[in-house]
């Protein structure tokens, strides 16, 4: 079959379209100018140095790191048994439960945010804080963690688990010695992806945070000030690099190890 070049050209253009605008941020963050304009006027790292001096930014970075870690550990710990249940057990109503677990993916995040806001403020009477942000983030991270783990658990040979049971291991032993090690790449990528979701999430954090900011909320507050643009560009570039490194790590780990012929497991 003759292979046309048309699609290859399209694919290259597509990647350029997807990456181009985003790469503008790091490009201008090294430009020696207070405006993000062409022509480039010279190379500088001073925007990055300035950024490090901003106490508020460092504080919101620490908040985001703390929330991200707590959220991803919690979401993954909840997602592991859920994914095992969905891939290994039969029970009535499973499709309904699975689609309910995926609901936060399709509900607009502003609806999730105001719904949580109403119940937290009016019905529970709790103050808004980083805890309420973390709670909201667990909700949005969970569907991702569950689906990463499901695709991993479906990807390896279940007869290994059956063998372990036949050889006299208890379910707990089978889980610790067979299932968990085999699922480990999935667990690690679930941890990394859950962290990224929380670290990058803006709308829920914007609504549910109290006096303290997360990094995206801080970034958003800086967008209003044109004179702070270079610092914002630098901060944005750092966030981009961090997420990219984490995603690549998560994806590489997920694909390594046990080979799979499940086409859904990409």
């Amino acid at each position: 079959m003759k292979k046309g070049w048309g699609l290859t050209v399209y694919a290259v253009l597509f990647v350029a379209f997807v990456y181009g605008p985003v790469l503008i941020l790091p490009l201008f963050s090294f430009n020696d100018n207070t405006f993000a304009t062409f022509p480039l006027t010279g190379f500088t790292t001073r925007h990055y140095v300035d950024m490090l001096g901003q106490r508020q930014m460092i504080a919101s970075l620490m908040n985001s790191l703390r929330i991200g870690l707590a959220v991803t550990v919690l979401a993954t710990a909840i997602a592991i048994p859920a994914a095992i249940s969905i891939t290994r057990y039969r029970f009535p109503g499973k499709p309904a439960v699975l689609s309910m677990l995926m609901l936060p993916l399709v509900v607009p995040s502003i609806v999730l945010a105001v719904a949580l806001l109403v119940i937290i403020l009016r019905f529970l009477g709790l103050p808004l804080s980083l805890w309420t942000v973390a709670a909201g983030h667990v909700l949005v991270a969970l569907p991702f963690c569950v689906s990463v783990l499901i695709s991993r658990l479906e990807g390896f040979d279940q007869s290994l688990e059956e063998a372990s049971r036949d050889l006299g291991c208890s379910p707990m032993q089978t889980f610790r010695r067979v299932t968990l090690p085999l699922a480990m790449p999935g667990v690690i990528s679930s941890l990394l992806l859950g962290f990224i979701i929380s670290f990058d999430e803006f709308v829920i954090a914007f609504f549910l945070t109290g006096t303290e900011n997360t990094l995206p909320v801080y970034l958003y507050s800086q967008l209003r000030f044109p004179n702070k643009l270079p610092g914002t560009l630098a901060l944005g570039s750092v966030i981009l690099v961090v997420s990219t490194v984490l995603v690549i790590t998560a994806e590489v780990i997920r694909k390594r190890g046990v080979q799979t012929d499940n086409p859904g497991d990409y």
Binding site: V22, L25, D200, G236, S243, V247
Partner: peptide, 17 residues
């Protein structure tokens, strides 16, 4: 996959720039 996981806020902000 990478662009999907990078900050939504930043992808939108980049169009402003």
């Amino acid at each position: 996959t990478i662009p999907f996981w990078t900050s939504y806020l930043l992808r939108v902000f980049s169009w402003k720039v």
